[in-house]
């Protein structure tokens, strides 16, 4: 029964989050801050992971598809589909669930236990909206940028390391990348990214905002935020994949 109560509390929190802001100017200022904290600051880790995992995917596929019965473009083609549909939106967001999720939960949790959220409430500020809405919006705004950058760098990393190690020729790889390309894969990847960004930011915010106790509970909330974001994300992945492909 506890799970239903928690889902109910989560939905009530979301209702409070999506309210008309008291002072849109302050919300915009906070949004810019969150774009920096949650978006731009995530780019380095996204870049590093994308380049190296993209390279590993291409090398792995090239090794497994080296049989002459497969066309030579298959490695580039499979890499593109795998990276655009699963790696960039799902894997990268699982990584971001750890980085952003723990950041949001610990920030809000600390604000809760140090009575900063109570201070906002006493002033008459809708604390849920003021603190959480800019985070959700920042994550959603930055989602297509993260996915596009991740896709590009993963494919680039695959090309660079694939050709430098000699497992695939540049021509075959680029030929496979361009084969039968439609925007559908990109569209699915972006839709996944939007949904995952919302899940990560809102679930983590819920865990942090509702912390009760002290520093130990903030730690627990942070861990729960990451675990629950990841589980919700992979369930959503299964549903979206089934619906859109």
């Amino acid at each position: 029964m506890k799970i239903f109560s928690e889902i109910g509390s989560y939905l009530i929190l979301l209702k409070n989050v999506f309210q008309v802001p008291e002072n849109p100017k302050l919300y915009r200022k906070k949004l810019v801050f969150e774009l920096q904290a949650l978006g731009i600051n995530s780019l380095p880790i996204v870049a590093v992971i994308s380049i190296f995992v993209g390279a590993a995917i291409v090398i792995q596929l090239a090794a497994n598809l080296s049989n002459p019965i497969y066309p030579r473009w298959i490695t580039g083609f499979s890499s593109r589909e795998g990276i655009m549909l699963e790696f960039a939106p799902t894997m990268i967001n699982l990584v971001l669930a750890g980085k952003i999720g723990s950041h949001i939960a610990s920030e809000l949790g600390t604000m809760r236990i140090t009575e900063q959220i109570d201070a906002l409430d006493v002033m008459g500020v809708n604390s849920a909206s003021y603190l959480i809405l800019p985070k959700i919006v920042a994550c959603i705004i930055f989602s297509p940028i993260i996915i596009t950058v991740s896709t590009f760098l993963a494919l680039l990393g695959g090309w660079f390391f694939g050709t430098i190690t000699g497992v695939i020729s540049s021509y075959d790889y680029l030929d496979g990348l361009q084969l039968d390309y439609t925007n559908h894969s990109l569209f699915v990847g972006l839709i996944k990214g939007f949904v995952y960004s919302f899940i990560i930011s809102s679930v983590s915010a819920f865990r942090g905002y509702t912390v009760e106790g002290g520093a130990l509970e903030v730690g627990h909330a942070s861990t729960r935020a990451v675990v629950e974001s990841c589980i919700t994300l992979i369930i959503a992945n299964l549903i979206i994949t089934n619906l859109l492909l």
């Binding site: 801050f33 600390t110 604000m111 140090t114 009575e115 900063q116 201070a119 006493v122 002033m123 008459g124």
Partner: peptide
């Protein structure tokens, strides 16, 4: 609430 001022035990100043 706009006419209420409150001083919390730990100050509750905004860290950011």
């Amino acid at each position: 609430r706009e006419r209420i001022g409150m001083v919390f035990q730990g100050g509750a100043l905004f860290d950011s």
